[in-house]
Simulated scan of single mutants.
Amino acid sequence: MAKKQLNVRVDATTAEMARERAEQQGISMNQYIERLVQQDMGEAGRNFVDAAAQFMKEHEAVFLAEFGSPSELQDVRR
């Protein structure tokens, strides 16, 4: 995958903490930042799925009234 260059500004303390963590993990700063973003996106995806499941749980009766049960939907599609 092609890489893109990003320029970010952080305070000196944050930059030093990031350098130290990357060094502790034996990876470059680029790899460290990339991993952080990927982890964050994974959490966002999980949060979305959890929120969608909660929404469906709370509003299941409305969907059933409008569309019927999943098995009824399959019967209509056939």
Rank of each mutant, 00 (worst) to 15 (best):
Q31R: 13
Y32L: 05
V8F: 14
V37S: 07
V62R: 07
E58Y: 07
Q39S: 07
F67H: 10
A53R: 12
Q54C: 04
K4P: 03
A22G: 03
E16N: 05
G26T: 08
E16P: 02
Y32H: 15
V37Y: 11
R9S: 11
A12S: 15
N7G: 11
N7C: 02
R35D: 06
I27C: 10
F67T: 05
G26M: 04
L36V: 05
M56I: 13
Q24M: 01
L64I: 10
V10T: 08
E16H: 04
V62T: 01
A65G: 14
R77M: 15
E66P: 00
R77V: 15
Q38L: 12
K4M: 13
N30W: 04
L64W: 01
Q31A: 12
K3N: 10
V37E: 02
H59P: 02
M56N: 08
M1T: 07
T14P: 00
S71H: 01
Y32P: 02
Q39D: 12
M41I: 14
Q38N: 07
E43V: 02
G68L: 03
A53P: 00
E60W: 11
L64Y: 11
M1S: 14
Q74N: 03
A15L: 15
V10R: 04
E43T: 04
R21D: 06
Q24Y: 06
E66A: 06
V76F: 15
V10P: 01
Q39V: 05
S71R: 09
K57S: 05
D50S: 07
D40A: 14
F63K: 01
D75R: 15
A2I: 09
T14E: 09
R77P: 00
M29K: 05
N7F: 10
D11F: 11
A2G: 01
R78M: 12
Y32C: 03
R46P: 01
L36T: 01
Q31C: 10
S69K: 03
